[in-house]
Structures are given as C-alpha cells and as structure tokens.
C-alpha cells in the first residue's frame, strides 16, 4: 500500500503535471479564468485519466507494443466522447464555457503521457494511484492559476455562485488583462518562478 501512496504523492509536487512536466498547459491556461471552470476541467480530465489508466493497465499484457499508441488514442478518444456527451446532458452550462477545450482533452499530452509512461508498465492499483495523484496535482495547479486570475481579473472571489469575498478597489476597476489570454501566460510564468525561487520546485 505504501507503494501506491508513493505513486499518489509524487504527482502532487515532485512530478506535478503542469508545473514540472509542463504537460496539459493548453487546458490549464485556457480554462483557468475562474475557479468553477478550473474544477470543471479537472473533473473531465479526472474521468478520462482514471478510465484510461484502468483500461490500459488491464490490457497491458496483450497489447502488441508496435500498435500500442493508436490503441491508447482510441481508448482515450472514446472516454472523451463519453465525458463530452455526459457534460452536454447534465452540465450544459459548463459544457458551453469549456467549448472546444473539452473535446481537446483527447490531445492533452498528460493523459497519453501517463498511459504510455506509467499505466502500460504498471499493475492496476498503482496506475489508479498514479491517476489520482496526477489529477490532484493538475487540480492544485489549475486552482492556483485560476485563483490569481479570477481575483485580479474580476476583483471578487466566488465559487459555484457563492460570493466568498470582494476586494474593495479591484471589484470596481478590475484588471481585465488577467482574464484575457496574455494574463494566463503571465500568471503561470510568475507562479513557476515563485515556486522555483522558494525551492518548492527543483530547477
């Protein structure tokens, strides 16, 4: 069991998919304009990553290595189709805000990367632990980015419609640049530099 715990913990900081491996940047930046969207994207990624890791760990014994990549891609694409239809049916608002970034989960390098680098070589329990760790690491990164962007870009903090607090001056004159695309690059760049400077991430 300590083995699985190790696979889980490594995804949080030491091999955090966004901050260290720089994978999955396009969803991380595109949807991180608010915490709601960040959590929605995390949910979609979680379902696909967990499903892909389970299926691939289960069939890893009899997948011929020469055709493994197309097989992994079809498995991932099927799971993304399922998630896309589920979101469309049960979370239509979120489906609309995520837009093209929901079908694009299929080319999130993080998912194929974990399938290829981990689930195709490891037993199922450890692959599940790996998927959970990577998802939590992805969530930490997305929530950190979207917290800064939502706070500075709108001047107030609200999650799922509940207002938590409002900043005095910023709510009247928000720094709209932070919810615009360049703001995403700026926040991620500064966060990376900060985490490296404080020694949380190794250079």
């Amino acid at each position: 069991m300590s083995d699985s715990r190790k696979e889980f913990v490594k995804g949080l900081i030491t091999t955090n998919p966004v901050f260290v491996l720089l994978l999955g940047l396009c969803p991380a930046l595109a949807v991180s304009t608010s915490i709601d969207n960040a959590l929605g994207m995390t949910l979609a990624t979680f379902i696909v990553l967990l499903g892909a890791n389970i299926i691939i760990a289960a069939i890893r014994g009899f997948v011929p290595s020469i055709t493994r990549i197309p097989i992994f891609i079809v498995i991932i694409a099927t799971l993304v189709t399922v998630v896309n239809l589920l979101f469309n049916a049960f979370l239509p608002d979120l489906h609309r805000t995520l837009g093209i970034y929901l079908p694009l989960v299929v080319v999130n390098c993080m998912i194929l990367g974990r399938a290829e680098a981990f689930a195709s070589k490891n037993p199922m329990i450890r692959s599940i632990a790996d998927a959970l760790g990577m998802t939590v690491g992805f969530m930490i990164a997305l929530v950190m980015i979207s917290f800064v962007r939502q706070l500075l870009g709108t001047g107030e903090m609200s999650v799922f419609g509940f207002s938590i607090f409002t900043l005095p001056v910023l709510s009247e004159h928000p720094l709209a640049m932070f919810i615009l695309p360049p703001g995403g690059f700026l926040v991620l760049g500064l966060l990376l530099a900060l985490l490296r400077w404080r020694g949380v991430l190794k250079i």
Binding site: P182, G183, G189, R196
Partner: peptide, 18 residues
C-alpha cells in the same frame, strides 16, 4: 535570475507577445 530561466521567462515573453 536563476529561478526565471527557461520556462518562466518564455511564458512572460509570450505574455508580452500576446
């Protein structure tokens, strides 16, 4: 600065380009 080298400074360049 050492902590800015590589990805962070590339991302900040991307901000300015954007």
């Amino acid at each position: 600065p050492k902590s800015m080298r590589g990805a962070p400074v590339a991302l900040i360049t991307a901000t300015l380009l954007g």
